[in-house]
Design a protein around this nucleic acid. Structure first.
Lengths: 224, 224
DNA sequence: GTTGCTTCTGAGCCTTTTCTGAGATCTCCG
DNA sequence: CGGAGATCTCAGAAAAGGCTCAGAAGCAAC
């Protein structure tokens, strides 16, 4: 399950299985946790249901084309950074990709190093390449699943507590509806109040103000 | 050069397969156990996951250049001695290689005897230098497979116990997932709890705090 | 062969985490 | 104010994760 939950998670959508395998190995060495899909349909499914820090999407895909996939994801308000791979280097395609909502564009063949550099850049853009997410005056240690208080005290979180807080902290100003938290953090578990329960746990450990309730809309990150 | 029981392990990263084959044979004759990689990517993978006493890396490599590979290994806190091979004898390259963290540099073509001499020298240097890993107030004697307590008392570890503790001590701040310990130390043995068992053995010999449990994530080096 | 150590497996038990649901409390709005 | 729906709190069951250990199997030295 979520063994290395602290690792940045990558969704790789690439139909060339040999290339996909190499990339997966490369990414694993680099400390990423990778899910792979070999066609657009599957990619869409994973992209909508999983939580990823970055996505790498090939432009040409069977079943559902890469740009089409990207557009669909964006239509569903998936804001994850996306790096599009393409065998076509022409300007037109490049523009098309960026138009469709890609954050970066890489032309095949490419150096492994360049891919990694671009991934890091995307991560940095998202403040996720960092080891910690800011939490008001405190910080969330992504490696250790701990909250570091200003005075240096550490409070360890369980896996789910961590996932929830991390999700909130990734977009600190956003209001996160229960439904999306339930989907992203709790894999649509059947209980209706699972999110409430974990908000309760977080508040019990970190104080009432970690999470703010926006009545009727959802939850938002507060301050510790 | 190394303690008699186990052969010294060499990682050879060389894209010229003919040369690689010859070197592997030479090294085998000389009592080394050799893993070979033919491109930088594969070399990086092996270098990060395997344990080697020395690495021989060609400067020019496909996919991931030799110096880049070296820098990457160093960045991941791999401290193994590295001998860089190069067809280019110019000063600039020499400096580049040493900059990138090489311990020695050998220009092609070279005599077999010279390579062996330099390997022995690197082995020796390893003995002089960091022959102990710090373990809080104590230390892990890499030659004798013993833990040296602050008061000078020595506790002998079995082979597996040593490998496990060494792996943890090599990256003392990292959290090591069970799965990776299982792969690296126990060659993916079938039992699920092999890592737990050896953690238990270490704790029994060295006290509860040698190894810290990070629930759901893995183990981390503690203090003795 | 016997002795002694190491390695590995798996069973049993304990702890922590996860999930569910039900009652108490709160908020909004008429 | 009062009711409906939303939110909070929490206890307890189930599942997952972790610890301890006994014993079998392997290996090396005597």
């Amino acid at each position: 399950m979520h063994d290395g939950a602290t690792k940045p998670r990558v969704l790789l959508v690439e139909d060339d299985r040999e290339l996909a395998g190499m990339l997966a190995e490369l990414l694993a060495d680099e400390g990423y946790e990778t899910d792979a899909a070999h066609d657009g349909q599957r990619g869409l499914h994973l992209g909508l249901t999983g939580r990823y820090d970055v996505m790498i999407i090939d432009r040409r895909l069977p079943v559902l084309d890469g740009l089409e996939l990207l557009a669909r994801l964006r239509a569903q308000a998936v804001t994850t950074r996306v790096l599009v791979l393409s065998a076509l280097g022409e300007l037109a395609d490049r523009v098309g990709g960026l138009d469709a909502g890609a954050d970066d564009y890489l032309v095949k063949p490419f150096e492994a190093e360049e891919l990694l550099a671009r991934l890091r850049a995307l991560g940095r853009r998202d403040l996720e390449g960092a080891e910690c997410l800011p939490l008001g005056a405190a910080a969330l240690d992504l490696q250790r699943h701990e909250v570091v208080l200003p005075r240096g005290e550490r409070i360890t979180l369980s896996g789910r507590e961590f996932e929830l807080l991390r999700t909130l902290a990734q977009r600190p100003k956003a209001i996160h509806p229960r439904a999306s938290l339930r989907t992203n953090v709790f894999a649509d578990s059947t209980g209706e109040s699972i999110v409430d329960t974990y908000v309760y746990y977080l508040r019990r450990k970190l104080g009432r103000d970690v999470v703010r309730t926006v009545h009727g809309l959802g939850y938002q990150l507060g301050a510790v």
